[in-house]
Design a protein around this nucleic acid. Structure first.
Length: 304
DNA sequence: ACACAAACCTGCCGGC
DNA sequence: TGCCGGCAGGTTTGTG
């Protein structure tokens, strides 16, 4: 369940259950699901067993559970999770078993007793890892080392609109590329990029720097709006692949305006939505509301 | 800086 | 029925 709202649904679902929970046993059934872990499965299991979990945190599509350090001088670390395209974190009774469970982390939860945190991942693009926490520059704030290069997301209170808009103006690339660049702004994936651009009436290939302040701000506002609305609806689920920690689907697919709706009328003007190939994936847009930008004029020779 | 392709994977769907 | 190409919400890495 990949984009920000879906990952946040998982984080929020884990919080009341795993906070204060103690890891009693770890079973790695698929070593490839530890791609992000810097070491063998035995290392992962040994270092995680016996640890106590702190409230889960998230940045963009990365989720992590900080762990209480074993000793005062030990480097703080966290159980890092990225869901990739098809990953799930499910809270289950320990008796439940299925073949797509790649990693099992059994915990004793202070409020919920013995439980299993199951990392389920059909395609194995996601992974877990133990990662050390590094300072961000904000006093008292740390993130996993693998998250250090990821920008804050638009729902982060410390996200700077002004800095993001300035960075957009400096970008010599199209707006959708910029929105999907997790080092510029995180949490946005293919669905919500298409939805926000439709809402802002901006074509995906419009040069980011040429948007102008008003339209750029509009894009950011629509991004924030669609992420927040999707979160309220429990995220976007097209099938049983994208679910919360209890295995339940979100309802935002009903609210999608363009994603996956090629051929259907634009909710605003009635023209059929089209799907185009862009960045090796589908881009959905209304060809009337989102006009393709005219090519940039050639740079005069005198300026070269 | 930026664009692009490939790599990492499984499963489903439509067409033949 | 079976096979095959195309499709899927992500990130990283290497090349140009």
């Amino acid at each position: 369940m990949p984009e920000l709202p879906e990952v946040e649904v998982v984080r929020a679902g884990l919080e009341p259950v795993v906070t204060g929970a103690v890891v009693t046993s770890v079973v790695v059934r698929e070593e490839r699901s530890l791609r992000r872990h810097g070491g063998p499965a035995e290392d992962f299991a040994e270092r995680l067993t016996g640890r106590t979990m702190l409230p889960p945190l998230r940045r963009g599509k990365f989720l992590w559970i900080p762990l209480v350090p074993r000793g005062a001088d030990e480097h703080p670390d966290a159980l890092l999770v990225h869901l990739g395209m098809s990953g799930q974190v499910l809270l289950r009774d320990r008796t439940v078993e299925d073949r797509l469970t790649r990693i099992r982390v059994d915990v004793d939860s202070p409020g919920h007793g013995p439980l299993r945190l199951a990392f389920v991942d059909q395609r194995m693009f996601g992974s877990m890892a133990l990662d050390r926490l590094v300072p961000t520059g904000v006093v008292g704030e740390r993130v996993p080392a693998q998250v250090a290069h990821i920008a804050r997301d638009p729902l982060d209170p410390r996200f700077s609109d002004a800095a993001f808009l300035a960075a957009l103006r400096a970008r010599r690339t199209g707006i959708k590329r910029a929105l999907l660049d997790q080092t510029l702004v995180s949490g946005i994936g293919n669905i919500y990029a298409d939805e926000a651009l439709w809402a802002a009436r901006v074509h995906y290939d419009e040069p980011a720097a040429a948007l102008g302040r008003v339209r750029a701000a509009r894009v950011l506002a629509e991004v924030r709006l669609v992420l927040a609305r999707a979160l309220e609806e429990g995220g976007t689920s097209f099938d049983a692949q994208y679910v919360n920690v209890n295995g339940a689907s979100g309802y935002f697919s009903r609210s999608l305006r363009v994603y996956g709706r090629q051929g259907e009328p634009c909710p605003r003007c009635g023209r059929p939505i089209v799907r185009e190939r862009f960045m090796n994936r589908g881009s959905h847009l209304c060809p009337r509301c989102q006009r393709r930008p005219s090519p940039l004029p050639p740079v005069p020779l005198a300026e070269v």
